[in-house]
Design a protein around this nucleic acid. Structure first.
Lengths: 334, 334
DNA sequence: CTGTTAGCGCTTTCAA
DNA sequence: TTGAAAGCGCTAACAG
């Protein structure tokens, strides 16, 4: 491996001068510079970032902790996409670490990124609780921003949307269409996002004078397939409903499949809605009514928080109702 | 920042001993070890991987170059997913670099990863030609594996599937269903994957004694939306066909949307098929006939090649026809 | 403008 | 089994 010393010798200067020529902060005589660049070209020298990072004590990289099992879906794809794009726009590399299957492994992933000396770390938590996250942030000097969790104790280290509020917005829309018997396909047990959406569902119903019916409540685990299975359970119960609200778009698509297999037409026989506004929803048949979550904005914000901790940034983001074909006005309950 | 020296002092030993205790390769007296770990716990010491990597001259990381605009789709999501999973299974970190919008930027991305001293680099090329890739591989000692491109000069630095062969398999199926007027929605101009699939399409037709009709040929650019628009163009031409084959699943979904908007029923009025077997195809309505590309296998293979360059590995992978609802037997051309 | 000299934090001989 | 010392490749004072 050719080092800066080789270049220096070939150009007949010292390492320092090569370094200066390379970094451009300090003036180097044109003539010398030319010799140096010639030597670099001749040797095929490539600076060792590792050494450079160590000397500078900074790495120009941003870490992202995300749970492996999750990033298969379109939702997470767009998250990684935005994370990579935002990082690059700040000339930072994105380093991925897997949260795997437990809080401990999520912690390990953070520690790994920390020992890699990432400049900042974003984490989309799945297992770690708010308390644990608070503690991790307290115990570290490296900037850490939590995505999709509200941390009351660390207002400038989190970005999130109010899922409950969004769900109430959605419910208001469904109720306005005349739906009264609305089924709910929940996300994984214990997921704060899922719980908030469910809370929004219950709250909106009660506000409309309707008591949530446990018979209309089934649980999935965010994947398309889990939505499919949840819907089959729901249909097997043989209770009447005119609309199904799934806690995310992926599950909604699974639900659609199950309904269609059961001979139900969407939206004539049953309306359907989801959350997240994943790309496919727009092109699904029928296209999916959903809530748009501004992932791009959130991530851009998160990266901004990491790199410029002082700049005041907005951490509560607004979701937005997107009305499409999958919701029709209610006729009569099946 | 607490360093190994702080720990050493606190434990009353030398840096070297702490290092040894930490790495476990050399024996350290139990009693001393205990003192060291106590000191580590007390100080909250975390080894600096940067320094460690520099000293060891290795990084435990694998780089992936991929074009930003692309990884929004489900296909690339699954690629990143498998890349991260495979890397982790070899205890390596995945580092992402963006190929952006040109061959030069793709080159830059590789150079970046190289200067980061990744142990190996995988590249899913979009702009770089086979010749350029050959050259890059020749000029570097770091292992580089190219995904989805056959490099005749570097058989053990590439993994790929035979897209033309796969397309012929698909065409054989469509022809067997009685389709004769089969439209083709191509991918971006100049894309080797797209060209191969198109070649397979033409070849299969000719083998069946049918001359490809330019009127049945439209071009998209891999995205759902481009498929939608391409299909609209096709429909506007008002030429008869009984089946549409899109060069990937995403475009097929766009095509489906356009057809349905035009009042065509799938698959009764027109059959539809795609490539890649992306998750959504299975749940789309109608579910999508496609060719499964074994991305998991390919990536695992690629990572294996990077880390164990000597081990003989298979680099040509087989695609597999997946028959679902979107293709029916041909009645009469519209 | 440029060379010399210390480090950055860790690993690894070499001796003891 | 442990310590001292050299070195990984680069940057950054400090002189000159």
């Amino acid at each position: 491996m050719v080092t800066i010393l080789d270049v220096a010798r070939l150009a007949g200067v010292s390492k320092a001068t090569v370094s200066r020529a390379l970094n451009g902060k300090v003036f180097v005589r044109e003539e010398v510079k030319a010799r140096i660049f010639q030597a670099i070209a001749d040797t095929g020298y490539r600076p060792n970032q590792l050494a450079r990072n160590l000397a500078n004590n900074k790495t120009n990289s941003i870490g992202l902790v995300i749970t492996n099992g999750l990033y298969n879906g379109p939702f997470f794809a767009s998250m990684i996409y935005h994370a990579a794009t935002s990082s690059e726009s700040f000339s930072r590399q994105l380093v991925l670490a897997d949260g795997k299957h437990s809080a401990q492994e999520e912690r390990d992933a953070i520690n790994l990124l920390l020992s890699l000396r990432c400049e900042g770390i974003m984490i989309y938590p799945k297992y770690l609780s708010v308390d644990e996250l608070d503690e991790i942030i307290d115990h570290n000097t490296t900037p850490i921003v939590v995505i999709n969790r509200e941390l009351p104790r660390h207002r400038s280290q989190c970005v999130f949307v109010d899922h409950q509020q969004n769900c109430e917005t959605m419910m208001a829309h469904l109720l306005a269409q005349g739906h009264r018997r609305i089924a709910f396909v929940a996300g994984s047990e214990g997921s704060p996002t899922g719980e908030s959406r469910f809370a929004g569902y219950c709250h909106a119903l009660r506000k409309a004078g309707i008591e949530p019916d446990p018979q209309l409540h089934v649980r999935g685990s965010w994947s398309i397939d889990s939505g499919y299975q949840a819907a089959q359970q729901l249909l097997a119960r043989n209770v009447p409903f005119t609309c199904i609200l799934a806690a995310n778009d992926d599950m909604a698509i699974g639900v659609a499949k199950a309904c269609q297999e059961a001979g139900l037409r969407l939206p004539q026989d049953v309306s359907l809605a989801g959350f997240d506004d994943s790309v496919i929803g727009q092109y699904y048949n029928p296209s999916l009514t959903t809530i748009h979550v501004p992932m791009d904005e959130m991530i851009r914000n998160a990266v901004g928080m990491l790199l410029q901790p002082d700049a005041q940034t907005l951490n509560a983001h607004q979701g937005e109702l997107v009305c499409r074909e999958s919701v029709a006005s209610a006729k009569k309950a099946r």
